[in-house]
């Protein structure tokens, strides 16, 4: 067990966890930020996606130690002050979620994509979200919501 100081959603917190703990479990179990989901633990499903310095990363594959160097943003931190981002609004309005379990990962990936490419093509969307499984296969609406957000933004 060691102390690590993390910057999550603009707040600095010191946690005392086993050194090899993945960021995913520090977020969920220690900090109570359960919006970041566990799906596979091996980097195959994307449910655990967060931003490290604005870049999408799978938190199940980042140790707490490596995470101390970055500014971490989780799904809970996307809408500071409770004002949903345009992408989150599109997600609600187009009713993308089914079970919803994958959606925080999808939204984190899509948000990182739109920051780089404000008007992505279908191919660019498919590529950027290729690491994210939706078991409910809400793919039709995921694409539609990203395009809708790109149009409005």
């Amino acid at each position: 067990m060691s102390n690590f100081t993390l910057n999550v959603n603009g707040t600095s917190s010191t946690v005392d966890v086993t050194d090899d703990t993945p960021l995913l479990w520090v977020l969920r179990d220690t900090l109570g930020l359960v919006g970041t989901k566990y799906g596979c633990g091996i980097g195959e499903c994307g449910a655990c996606t967060v931003h490290l310095d604005g870049v999408a990363a799978k938190s199940c594959g980042v140790t707490v130690k490596d995470a101390t160097a970055a500014k971490i943003t989780t799904i809970e931190g996307l809408a500071p002050g409770g004002k949903l981002t345009v992408l989150q609004q599109a997600w609600c309005h187009l009713d993308v979620p089914q079970c919803g379990y994958c959606q925080s990962g999808q939204i984190m990936c899509a948000t990182a994509l739109l920051a780089k490419k404000p008007k992505p093509t279908d191919e660019e969307i498919d590529y950027a979200l290729s690491a994210n499984i939706c078991r409910c296969a809400t793919y039709t609406r995921i694409r539609a919501a990203i395009h809708a957000a790109a149009t409005v933004a």
Partner: peptide
């Protein structure tokens, strides 16, 4: 067409699931 009642909680990562 009525969007899911939990949509806003889902897109902001609020606790909902068993896990």
């Amino acid at each position: 067409r009525v969007p899911g009642v939990d949509n806003e909680k889902i897109v902001t990562g609020q606790p909902l699931y068993g896990i």
